[in-house]
């Protein structure tokens, strides 16, 4: 078994007004970014997963999103990255 870093992004579904994103979008435009639109704010979640392959690690990450990390009524999720974790224990100096 190896360890993989699995990174997920959870965001409000497109059909739902993201009030927070809208407010940030207005602030960006106010400080000189008129070219920025459609700001949406989500959550970034990083996990370390023990698995035999990257595919398996991704599947575990997706299952975690389905069961807890995202609420399907209002949110979408996607696994944005899966990469092997170097064989150094967490917290040890590299």
């Amino acid at each position: 078994m190896r360890r993989f870093a699995v990174r997920a992004v959870v965001s409000l579904r497109r059909s739902i007004l993201d009030v927070q994103g809208k407010t940030v979008e207005q602030a960006l435009q106010a400080i000189g970014f008129p070219m920025i639109a459609q700001v949406r704010i989500g959550k970034y979640i990083e996990m370390e997963v023990e698995a035999s392959s990257a595919e398996e690690a991704r599947a575990v990450g997706e299952e975690a999103c389905r069961r807890l990390l995202a609420n399907p009524v209002i949110e979408d999720y996607r696994i944005v990255e899966v990469e092997p974790v170097p064989a150094v224990a967490v917290g040890e100096p590299q």
Binding site: L12, I16, V19, Q20, T23, N71, V73, I74
Partner: peptide, 17 residues
């Protein structure tokens, strides 16, 4: 109750934030 699926729906931030 909504998260547990005993009631339908979900909650968003208040419109006013």
């Amino acid at each position: 109750l909504c998260e547990a699926g005993l009631l339908p729906g979900a909650f968003l931030r208040n419109r006013s934030l």
